[in-house]
Design a protein around this nucleic acid. Structure first.
Length: 690
DNA sequence: TCCCCTCGAGTTCA
DNA sequence: CTCGAGGGGA
């Protein structure tokens, strides 16, 4: 080994980058907070912080007390509340709508753990309709409160939370050094009505429902106003905690109560699925009598060791689920059906409704999904339709009230041409969507592609929203993504520069140019995702980036037509064909080259758990696993930073061989890939911090 | 070949 | 958040 090797691994590279970023952020902080003279745009500052967070997610041992992520809050001027990065993300819950969904939940948990559904004990609690909130206690003292935000980053509402009577400022008993308590801030129904009466008397805003009232009260800039609002709090979970405070969910509830919190009632420990369903029915029946609004119940696997094993998929834990009460419904009139064109050319029908209040909000539009959906329900313009807010957010039409139909009404005819570019819009056999064939000539598609390009998960260009994008399009300034990066040059020579446009000024123009410049450095996976290749979303883009590592390696391989595509996880013939088709179009290749000329595309940083021998490795499972289930094995491997793929290729590092392994094992031997037994895998996935 | 699961794409309102 | 469809295990 020579000295070069020490630095030529992902972890040491990440460590060096991390240190550099921390230095930069500290310098910017001084400029911003101390000298009151920011030397960098908010967006660029956020990007630096984001990069630090990403590195720390991969290499937790780089997190030090003086890391910028560990400091309380930081400012962006976009909101008056300081942003707070949650120490661990606040997840959302999967939803069940009927008994079968609940049985399926038990089935999934049982299958993952390799136990029987009857073995699973579940803690059931009411799901209060309020706002999730995280309270951080250090040495028993409340030091910070944050809203859930997007789950990763929330807003600092400490001052307001201190005004809520059942949130203790100081914990009782002997709490751990650090304890983050999570729960729901809500308002009782009676308190809500009183508040509205007072608001009305004072000529102030009336709230639509207790939830909105709680939200409005919590986001007051003046905490003296919050103090006048009758807010309450139920504790139901913990986030960051030093040491363990319970081994079960029921124990956790008890511990929280002992620390001085109110815990949600009525709750019940359920031994069987039947108990769980009975609890659901009971809460639903008592719903009108409960003093607060409840939109369902929550089930949590009681055993916390099992919770840990189950982990989470995406943004939802596998060990918990919400069982929702039936959605509120309402009847209104369907005024029109509009056809929207998406970035892939998909024609999507949208219902334009006579505005009506459902579940506390006024609904005026609803998606109709597709042509078949309209035909299946025989939805016609002018019909009275039943709408509901599914999962409490997105409104949908559930049925047509046939008795109220006008005899003169006619079935809706779905157009077979694009409403924007008039191109033919064929429906591929066996597919549900109709797609505008206009492709590159369709303005609607081009605009949607641009919108995708600048969206948060892609280039994240702030200040270039839908409206301004459309404006630039209309004036012919932005027609392709590359145009975004020449905007400032174009503007310089223009007779009507941006700063002279209505609604724009020198400041906003400068700000936009700055935020575009901030994105001239971009991670490879974001870049690939931004291109908007059919069927290539965030996950697939990341897989491509991880496989090819650099922009040049990727684009060269794509232009040459790499057969290896299909050996990448999640990429089969259909997805590979779409990627190949994208590169077969000369316009796309030209665009790509043009675009790349304006950018610095960073090589992919391996997602790796530094201290695990599996980190950064590509691993394939084959045969029947006997020690743990396949799902669990896969989750564990990924937790260690491994890339789990489906088929063996020369790039595979390990093949874990279970019982009765067949062709993959043979292939592994042929390629000289290291074979691991299940026991080997267990040992390797255990070493390293989990 | 079938079925389950994950991913992609499209969407509402405050 | 929901639905459709591709991938891949069985």
């Amino acid at each position: 080994m020579n000295a070069g090797d020490l630095f030529d691994n992902p972890q040491s590279r990440a460590a060096m980058r991390h240190a550099e970023l921390c230095r930069q952020i500290a310098a910017h902080d001084v400029a911003y907070h101390v000298n009151d003279a920011p030397d960098i745009s908010d967006a660029a500052y956020d990007a630096l912080r984001r990069e630090v967070e990403e590195i720390e997610v991969q290499y937790p041992d780089l997190i030090t007390p003086d890391s910028p992520t560990q400091r309380v809050g930081y400012s962006t001027k976009s909101t008056p509340f300081q942003k707070v990065v949650h120490s661990r993300p606040m997840l959302s819950l999967g939803n069940a709508f009927d008994d079968q969904d609940v049985r399926d939940f038990y089935g999934r948990v049982a299958k993952f753990l390799g136990v029987q559904p009857d073995d699973i004990v579940v803690m059931a609690e009411p799901k209060i309709d309020g706002l999730s909130c995280a309270l951080r206690y250090e040495d028993g003292i409340l030091v910070r409160a944050a809203t859930r935000g997007d789950g990763v980053e929330g807003e600092d509402i400490t001052a307001n939370v201190l005004q809520i009577p059942d949130i203790p400022r100081q914990l009782k008993g002997t709490p751990p050094k650090v304890l983050e308590v999570r729960g729901e801030v809500y308002m009782r129904r009676a308190d809500f009505q009183d508040l509205n009466m007072r608001q009305q008397a004072a000529g102030d805003k009336i709230f639509a429902n207790p939830r909105n009232a709680a939200a409005g009260s919590l986001r007051q800039l003046d905490s003296r106003i919050t103090a006048l609002r009758p807010l309450r709090f139920f504790a139901y979970a913990v986030g960051d905690v030093s040491g363990a405070i319970a081994t079960s969910q029921s124990g956790l509830r008890q511990a929280l109560a002992d620390f001085g919190f109110t815990i949600s009632m009525p709750a019940q420990l359920c031994e069987t699925v039947a108990d769980t369903l009975a609890y659901y029915t009971e809460v639903m029946q008592n719903r009108p009598d409960l003093p607060f609004e409840v939109d369902g119940v929550v089930y949590k696997v009681n055993d916390m060791a099992w919770q840990d094993r189950l982990g989470s998929v995406g943004r939802a834990p596998r060990w918990a689920m919400a069982h929702k009460f039936p959605a509120e419904q309402a009847v209104t009139i369907l005024r029109d059906i509009q056809i929207q064109v998406g970035r892939t050319g998909a024609l999507t029908p949208v219902a334009i409704l006579e505005p009506i209040a459902v579940g506390g909000v006024v609904v005026a539009r609803a998606t109709l999904h597709n042509e078949d959906e309209i035909a299946r329900k025989d939805i016609r313009i002018g019909d009275h339709v039943m709408i509901e807010r599914a999962g409490d957010v997105i409104p949908k039409i559930t049925a047509v009230i046939m008795e109220k139909r006008e005899p003169s009404s006619i079935p809706f005819v779905f157009p077979d041409h694009c409403p924007v570019c008039q191109s033919y819009a064929p429906r591929v056999e066996d597919e549900v969507v109709r797609r505008c064939a206009g492709g590159l000539v369709c303005a609607a598609q081009a605009l949607e592609r641009l919108r995708h390009f600048v969206s948060r998960d892609a280039f994240d260009i702030v200040g270039l929203g839908e409206k301004s994008l459309e404006e630039f399009w209309d004036r012919g300034l932005i027609r392709t993504p590359a145009d975004i990066f020449t905007l400032q040059e174009q503007d310089k020579g223009s007779l009507t520069p941006l700063r002279s446009w209505p609604g724009w000024g020198p400041q906003s123009a400068q700000k936009l140019f700055a935020s575009i410049d901030d994105r001239r450095n971009i991670a490879l996976d974001r870049f690939i995702y931004a291109l908007g290749i059919r069927q290539v979303g965030q996950v697939t883009a990341k897989r491509l980036a991880a496989y090819y590592r650099s922009y040049t390696a990727w684009s060269d391989a794509m232009i040459a037509g790499d057969d290896a595509l299909q050996s990448i996880q999640d990429i089969g013939p259909a997805v590979a064909a779409d990627i190949t088709a994208f590169f077969a179009e000369p316009n796309n290749v030209a665009l790509l080259t043009d675009l790349a000329g304006h950018l610095t595309i960073a090589d992919h940083v391996m997602v790796a758990r530094g201290d695990s021998p599996l980190s950064g490795k590509t691993i394939v499972f084959t045969g029947t696993l006997t020690l743990i289930t396949r799902d669990e094995a896969k989750a564990r491997a990924e937790k260690c930073g491994a890339n789990v793929t489906g088929s063996v290729s020369r790039k595979t590092d390990y093949v874990v061989v279970g019982a009765d392994a067949g062709s993959k094992r043979a292939k592994a031997i042929e390629f000289g890939v290291t074979l691991l037994s299940e026991e080997d895998f267990r040992d390797m996935s255990q070493s390293g911090t989990l």
